[in-house]
């Protein structure tokens, strides 16, 4: 091997070595700062705080009722800047359960620093995750939000009682499901944030969200519990309620 060739081999080996040791690092472009924000959820009945079992409330039709279970999904959370660019939460599925305090607060992570003015969410679980087999986390079927008799997630659920219920046991039971077709209860909603949300590397802003359970029962259709008290499958009645329910969430305030 002559000297020139040897040099070539040496340089190749060095190059190879460098490539081997550097290849697994991501490109070292200066990374934009990222921060977090906390989503804090309060469940209400109009202006009253929702209290399971003991609280009594009045729907728009004048029916009184109490609630012993209130659960719903918020998924595909997206924060949008003025220029239209956005942050999408990774694997964004949150089951809010009034009985589980921890479920009413969660953190959005790795949000690029900047000012966000809108938030987009899917109320319910997107159709893809209704047709993709066994899921885990907040989509685990053990959480009681899955229809095994007709594959698909229950997007939102109210269980309670009302003296006006047409049911002999005076039960009210609303399970909204259906992820495709004309009666789908999956709703994509966009909210203008009441104040701009500033994300910085060090800040810990809070997005205060409220769900108003009364909104399930008026808006698009006025619901009376005499006729509507057990909606547990997909159809015209569940769709009517879901057209009301799509207004149940609102962004109340941003705490910097």
């Amino acid at each position: 091997m002559n000297n020139k060739t040897a040099k070539q081999y040496l340089s190749l080996t060095v190059m190879a070595g460098i490539m081997l040791f550097t290849s697994c690092d991501k490109k070292k472009t200066p990374e934009a700062a990222k921060g977090t924000a906390t989503v804090q959820i309060a469940n209400k009945a109009g202006s009253q705080t929702l209290v399971l079992n003991t609280g009594t409330y009045l729907n728009q039709n004048g029916d009184t009722f109490s609630v012993n279970m209130y659960k719903y999904y918020i998924s595909n959370i997206e924060l949008i800047r003025e220029d239209g660019s956005s942050y999408k939460e990774d694997y964004s599925y949150h089951l809010v359960d009034e009985a589980q305090t921890a479920s009413k607060s969660f953190q959005l992570k790795a949000i690029p620093a900047g000012t966000y003015t809108k938030m987009k969410v899917v109320l319910g679980v997107d159709s893809t995750h209704n047709v993709s087999g066994a899921q885990t986390g907040d989509l685990d079927p053990i959480l009681g939000m899955f229809w095994e008799w007709n594959t698909g997630y229950i997007m939102a659920k109210i269980e309670g009682r009302s003296p006006q219920s047409g049911n002999t046991q005076k039960i009210i039971s609303f399970h909204l499901g259906g992820f495709s077709g004309q009666y789908s209860s999956v709703k994509t909603v966009m909210y203008n944030l009441p104040q701009a949300l500033n994300i910085t590397a060090t800040g810990s802003p809070k997005i205060n969200i409220e769900s108003d359970i009364l909104k399930w029962f008026y808006g698009s259709s006025l619901i009376n519990f005499q006729n509507y008290n057990a909606i547990t499958s997909v159809g015209r009645f569940s769709f009517e309620i879901s057209e009301n329910y799509k207004n149940h969430l609102s962004v109340k305030s941003i705490e910097p």
């Binding site: 209704n130 047709v131 993709s132 087999g133 066994a134 899955f146 095994e148 008799w149 007709n150 594959t151």
Partner: peptide
Amino acid sequence: GRANHIEV
């Protein structure tokens, strides 16, 4: 056809 996936 009530179930749409072998896993569920």
